[in-house]
């Protein structure tokens, strides 16, 4: 196994810095960081923090693409820093900014309050259709029924899709891709009966009808959740609801 994975490489990191206690506005600082080719951008940031500038603030934890902490803009695209491999960035300079469309708390740390509020609003928890108690055993769910929603349950709440979504950038009231996907995840779950409650939040102008189906959310999703597909399915389903209600009121939904 001889290859260039462990080869050394000098990289210029151009990082947005902002400390509300002393900066009027954000600015870029440039650091020359000795890296190893097989590193990810997060490794480079950690090396920078430990050896060059301990004041840089950013979030990270798992270093395995599942905790969702380290979302940031890398060369203008929303990425997990632990999934952005240096081998995919051949240029000498890498530009790093906090996630777009969110206020900056400090440096690469963005304010997540809006996302957390929206997540809660869509009721992302099971509202049982037919209530069973645990002592009666599990709700039966076939592998095919599981498959209908599993993909949408993979969301790690990293917020990359909000940073990619042009609609969210223009209209911050938009509930947004991840929260709608999670609502859809429960709507599609054979154990759930809470769709009507969730539709009040998501089948609205701040919900799916704000989406113009650009599809950027699905392109940047590190877990292949495909929020765009979730939004499209919600649109189709709520259109059907509308027709049922207005033109076919004799048909039971």
């Amino acid at each position: 196994m001889t290859d260039n994975r462990l080869a050394a490489r000098q990289i210029e990191l151009e990082i947005l810095r902002y400390d509300p206690e002393k900066d009027q506005e954000p600015h870029f600082e440039r650091y020359s960081v000795p890296c190893i080719n097989e590193w990810c951008v997060l490794d480079a940031l950690n090396h920078l923090k430990d050896s060059i500038d301990p004041t840089l603030a950013y979030r990270w934890s798992c270093h395995m693409q599942v905790c969702g902490s380290c979302g940031m803009m890398i060369n203008g695209e929303p990425k997990l820093a632990c999934k952005a491999m240096l081998r995919d960035y051949p240029d000498a300079v890498i530009r790093i900014e906090p996630l777009a469309h969110f206020p900056v708390e400090r440096d690469l740390v963005s304010v997540a309050d809006d996302f957390m509020d929206k997540l809660k609003r869509v009721k992302p928890y099971l509202i049982p259709g037919k209530v069973r108690v645990p002592t009666e055993g599990e709700y039966k769910q076939t592998p095919a029924q599981l498959k209908r929603y599993r993909q949408f349950a993979m969301c790690i709440n990293c917020m990359l899709c909000y940073a990619a979504c042009p609609e969210y950038g223009l209209q911050p009231k938009f509930i947004g891709p991840a929260a709608i996907s999670l609502a859809h995840r429960y709507n599609q779950d054979s154990r759930d009966g809470g769709r009507d409650e969730r539709q009040e939040e998501i089948a609205t102008n701040e919900g799916v009808w704000e989406c113009t189906f650009v599809g950027a959310c699905s392109e940047v999703c590190p877990k292949h959740v495909d929020p765009a597909a979730a939004l499209q399915q919600v649109k189709v389903a709520s259109t059907v609801d509308w027709y049922l209600e207005h033109f076919m009121s004799w048909v039971k939904k």
Binding site: Y125, L126, T142, L146, R191
Partner: peptide, 14 residues
């Protein structure tokens, strides 16, 4: 399971 955890399933749904 009752809170919605997506456990893997047997063909019969258990």
């Amino acid at each position: 399971e009752h809170w919605g955890c997506p456990w893997n399933r047997e063909d019969n749904g258990s």
